[in-house]
Write a protein that binds this DNA or RNA. Structure first.
Lengths: 202, 202
DNA sequence: CGAAAATTTGACATGACTCAACTGGAGTGG
DNA sequence: CCACTCCAGTTGAGTCATGTCAAATTTTCG
């Protein structure tokens, strides 16, 4: 019999702090946030979103780790993004168009998220336009990161990309299987293994 | 003696239409936009932004074509984005942090842009919060495209990427040198030439 | 403990790069 | 308007980074 996972009902505090750092919130805004975001726990290997489904929620990771990926025609998995504590993850394309997603979001560890539904987010934007600004800034930052990633991928060979990954996500490397790192870097697990091997002997 | 380039003073109309399609504007907002965006013409090969400078303006392309790229340690050029009519281009990282950029933005053809300065954009956000929303949506769309691009780059080989490029930018392919297409696709011009050769004979 | 998942290793295949040489067209100055 | 340069594109030979496949080994976790 499985244990029923306990969800920390105070997790909203983390999100409120997160928002407040970006821009002070009034009490009403805080209540609005608290009322619209729902905590939810996913077990390792559980899916938050599956290919073919519409992405109905925005996820804010309270604890744990998620990966968002697609599977190409030849069956290879490509990880677009990891999300750990204090990161956002969702397929924005599917979310805003409300069309089926080509992406999967899956728990790499047991993970607690705060979720807001599509309609609730739109409503939040209307009731508190401040969130237009907050989310504008969030998305800008994601875009900047994504651009850097694209350049890394085009400009450096696999060894360097791996080194960069270790620098940028020092904590992650020990928490997740190398297979995932490989499919984030855009190489095969076998090749990553060979790279790691070289490193050790040096 | 060079001809003095003429700038279409009515180009703002295009931008106002563009905004209005996303979200209706009041007359005051329209005036605000008209007062803050300045038209400017760049000649082919002229730089809008150079590596090492701070990106001080947001650019909206009225006509022509720009490319944004970086040059990696080994001297190879990587094009992040083209911008043609009705597209936005700027190094958001540098723009918002006001730190020197690692990117270049250069005119591929004679190009007219509408520019808004950093402080003016912040002021616009304050005076008309509607633009927080408009730019949130714009950036979301850029992010979605950038994600697709990353996946393309990781998932498909050069031939397929080239076919996709032709589908996605049918007009561009005839307007710009193949060298640029190659450095957008992340391959060498020589290899692109070989791919194109194969296509013809089929 | 046992099954499933992750990692490693090696032989071989291949997509894409490098370099160098050549061609043709476009722009520029005399 | 010609001559010249420069830039873009092509071609080929050789090389290198990374992929494929299959098998053996190790780790993880129920």
């Amino acid at each position: 019999m499985e244990k029923k996972p306990k969800i920390d009902q105070t997790s909203t505090t983390l999100l409120l702090e997160y928002f407040s750092k970006m821009m002070p919130l009034t009490d009403e805004e805080k209540e609005l946030v608290a009322s619209k975001f729902q905590p939810r726990l996913y077990r390792k290997r559980q899916f938050i979103l599956q290919e073919g489904d519409v992405c109905n929620v925005f996820n804010f990771v309270v604890s744990g780790c998620l990966r968002m990926y697609n599977i190409d025609e030849s069956g290879t998995t490509h990880i677009i993004q990891f999300a750990i504590e204090n990161w956002w993850i969702s397929d924005k394309g599917s979310f805003y168009s409300q069309k089926p997603s080509a992406l999967n979001i899956e728990a790499v560890e047991d993970t607690t998220v705060l979720q807001i539904k599509h309609d609730d987010l739109l409503d939040l934007y209307v009731k508190a336009p401040k969130f237009d600004r907050i989310f504008r800034v969030l998305v800008e930052n994601s875009l900047i990161k994504m651009q850097e990633r694209l350049l890394q991928n085009m400009g450096s060979d696999a060894r360097i990309r791996y080194e960069e990954f270790l620098k940028q996500y020092p904590t992650l490397a020990n928490r997740i299987p190398n297979t995932h790192i490989a499919s984030f870097l855009g190489i095969t697990p076998e090749f990553l293994s060979k790279i790691r091997n070289e490193r050790v002997s040096k």
